[in-house]
Amino acid sequence: MAVATSHYLILSAILFSIGVAGVLTRRNAIVIFMCIELMLNAVNLAFVAFARHLGQADGQVFVFFVMAVAAAEVAVGLAIIIAVFRNRETVDVAEVNLLKW
């Protein structure tokens, strides 16, 4: 017996919320990035669940594109973190406040 689609969506919602909580509470920039990856994965799970629910492959193709964009985003983000660390010797987002008014 197949698991109902709503179960997958609830799991996806829980994972997404944990990711949001991590982004809001953590101050280490790298952990914040990992939480963003977690949110992207939660969305991917919802996409695949809907793809099965509707019997169409389009959702799985979209997950493919999300993964491609996420890979690019991680590479650029980590490069920015390295550049910031070189200049300020920290990855604490509370101390990197040059653009704060």
């Binding site: 944990i18 991590g22 509470t25 953590r26 952990v31 939480c35 977690l38």
Partner: peptide
């Protein structure tokens, strides 16, 4: 869910 909580 458990390892996501631990991640945070």
């Amino acid at each position: 869910v458990a390892s996501a909580v631990l991640l945070v």
